[in-house]
């Protein structure tokens, strides 16, 4: 059973001892990609595992009830039943971990999943706190969290105020996230660092630590709206912070890369990285999520290829 992260005292000495060598992190990422591979039935099994770790996401200014409902339906039947059967799985056993939407779309998502009797299997995650920039008063940012939780969101993906990281105002960052954690109540707190805007891997590592010290249940790379989103190197940095935190406090914090993860090969690369850096304990949706919208479609194509030996077209599969 996973113990929720209660957080710990802000430890500035710990932060000051952090050194990240950027080139070495990139080298590690390249080595993992060239030296490890998952093939054949292993690939199929791993891809199915990837599906169960997806936070199927729509975060558009043009989101309406209809596309959110379609998203929920896709989340419930992530892989078509005949393909599951061909792979030796019982129908209805593979869903995405959650759907991820704007706060205003939480009610429709909750209602749709309830209607489909999936409310216990698929979580509703809501972004909040002035997503994606965070450039709003703390008061309204906290109010967003409370509103979304009240409407039934199980998970809140918050964004941090990047200026606090850039200016290394760790105490303020710590206190803000603590308040957000409080606002979440029983909902899980997933903290988006927006790594593409933090300036250095050192800052990514330190912001990760502060987010965990303040009680985040997950740390997440990006909003998907920055110029640079989830890359394997930045993932390595965050995973090392998670491992460091786990080693010192004994609390397991989850990890969610988001933005730019579009292909089945991408998802395997992430799973391999997680396995190598954090181990199998993190290879499940309690501890690991993909923030993605298009990924699922490509995984379906690869599974189709695995089953039939023929390449698939994207239009064969239901639209999310």
């Amino acid at each position: 059973m996973v113990v929720l992260n209660p957080g710990c005292e802000l430890d500035l000495g710990w932060l000051n001892s952090i050194h990240v060598n950027t080139a070495a992190v990139h080298q590690r990422a390249a080595n993992l990609q060239s030296r490890k591979a998952v093939k054949g039935p292993y690939q199929a099994a791993w891809l199915l595992r990837a599906v169960t770790c997806i936070d199927l996401t729509t975060l558009g200014g043009d989101d309406t009830d209809s596309n959110v409902m379609r998203l929920c339906a896709k989340a419930c039947r992530a892989v078509s039943e005949d393909m599951l059967e061909a792979l030796g799985f019982e129908a209805g056993n593979i869903q995405t971990a959650a759907v991820c939407v704007y706060p205003a779309k939480v009610p429709i998502a909750v209602a749709t999943l309830k209607k489909m009797k999936m409310e216990n299997k698929i979580n509703v995650a809501s972004v909040a706190t002035g997503f994606p920039s965070g450039q709003y008063p703390l008061e309204t940012r906290l109010a967003e969290i409370r509103w979304a939780v009240e409407k039934g969101a199980h998970e809140i993906d918050i964004v941090v105020d990047r200026s606090l990281v850039i200016n290394k105002l760790w105490v303020d960052l710590y206190q803000e996230i603590q308040k957000m954690k409080e606002a979440c109540g029983s909902a899980h707190l997933k903290t988006i660092l927006a790594v593409g805007e933090l300036g250095s891997f050192d800052n990514v590592y330190k912001a990760s630590l502060v987010a965990m010290m303040a009680g985040s249940d997950f740390i997440k790379t990006s909003t998907g709206k920055e110029a640079v989103n989830a890359t394997i190197p930045v993932g390595i940095v965050m995973c090392r912070a998670i491992k460091d935190y786990w080693t010192r406090t004994g609390y397991q914090v989850g990890f969610k890369p988001a933005g730019g993860i579009r292909t089945a090969a991408d998802s395997l690369a992430w799973l391999i990285m997680i396995k190598e850096e954090l181990g199998n304990d993190w290879l499940n949706n309690k501890m690991f999520r993909f923030g993605a919208s298009g990924l699922l479609g490509d995984i379906e194509r690869q599974l189709h290829h695995h089953i039939t030996g023929r390449y698939a077209s994207a239009t064969q599969f239901a639209m999310g």
């Binding site: 998952v38 093939k39 292993y42 791993w46």
Partner: peptide
Amino acid sequence: SKPSIQQIFDSMEYGPV
């Protein structure tokens, strides 16, 4: 015996390459 996809799904081990 070769593990089934379900078994690999549960174990998340690497296969031989």
